[in-house]
């Protein structure tokens, strides 16, 4: 296992595209999270102009809500697409450069090849989740006291939820790249599906009171993105008595995990039978 990771690391260590996309991901992620409060308040101010009693200023970076809010903004489609594209490039490169053939010729088993890619997905998801958790911790710390951290009741559940989102979404991307084998085509189809086709399906099925348990809930990308379904906004809790999401639902996690499991099994079966 260490050997496979060592090989994968050599493949990406000096790969500029990988590091540029990873860098862009973190820039978008940080920008999204740090601008979220400003954007929300901008909206609130707009609404307030027409309200007799204005809504108070919205703060989202306080413990314990910061965990949920960071997880929410980190798992929106436009940010999550970056690690997915990185994965597509890493797998389709192996087909484009025929290095998958060469790896097998040189004595790697087909199973080991797939395992090495899945390990890299796992490692990337772990690292990115840890970075996000550290980021959320420092944002929370700079806005509220250490005594309110609430790491175990709020922090871990939402960060693990984000980890599952990221992991499963990268498995989808890996699956897409493995099936299509072509970098441009895979990125185009994956992005189109994630950013346009599923939202359009949502629009169609968005009947009043129906949008919760419709087919939409079970769509692969949506099930990933909706693990942290809503941001935690104290105003809603206090004033309107609405709390949209208390925790990450375990059953909701099972949907993307099931999709990922089916995809991984399919990939192994195809790899076993198909000629390289």
């Amino acid at each position: 296992m260490i050997k496979l990771l060592k090989i994968e690391f050599k493949k990406i260590r000096t790969y500029k595209v990988f590091w540029i996309l990873t860098g862009l991901y973190f820039v978008f992620l940080a920008a999204g999270i740090l601008l979220a409060e400003f954007m929300i308040n901008n909206m609130v101010n707009g609404v307030n102009r027409r309200m007799p009693i204005p809504f108070p200023h919205v703060a989202i970076y306080y413990f314990p809500d910061v965990w949920q809010n960071v997880a929410f903004f980190a798992s929106i489609r436009y940010v999550l697409i970056f690690p997915a594209i990185i994965m597509i490039i890493l797998i389709t490169n192996e087909f484009t450069f025929k290095t998958i053939r060469q790896n097998v010729i040189n004595g790697m088993s087909k199973t080991e090849f797939l395992a090495s890619k899945l390990l890299i997905i796992l490692l990337m998801a772990v690292i990115m989740s840890i970075v996000l958790a550290a980021g959320a911790f420092f944002i929370g710390l700079s806005h509220s006291g250490l005594s309110e951290v609430n790491f175990f009741s709020q922090g871990i559940p939402f960060m693990v939820g984000f980890f599952i989102s990221l992991l499963c979404y990268m498995v989808y991307a890996f699956f897409c790249g493995f099936i299509l084998r072509n970098t441009g085509l895979s990125i185009a189809i994956f992005t189109l599906y994630s950013l346009i086709i599923e939202p359009v399906i949502y629009f169609i099925f968005r009947a009043p009171f129906m949008f919760k348990n419709t087919i939409y809930t079970y769509l692969p990308v949506n099930s990933v993105i909706r693990l942290t379904e809503y941001p935690a906004i104290p105003m809603l809790k206090k004033i309107m008595g609405v709390n949209l999401q208390e925790h990450v639902s375990l059953t909701a996690c099972l949907i993307p995990i099931a999709y990922s499991a089916v995809m991984i099994v399919t990939v192994f079966l195809i790899m076993k039978r198909k000629d390289l």
Binding site: T14, T99, N106
Partner: peptide, 29 residues
């Protein structure tokens, strides 16, 4: 296969890696 050295059709290497790194990957495998 580890006891066999092979070149099948075209040379297959990572274009963005240098010769040494490409060979190190082969050696690792």
């Amino acid at each position: 296969r580890k006891r066999i050295g092979s070149v099948i059709e075209s040379p297959n290497f990572f274009p963005y890696l240098d010769a040494v790194t490409n060979l190190k990957i082969v050696a690792d495998i």
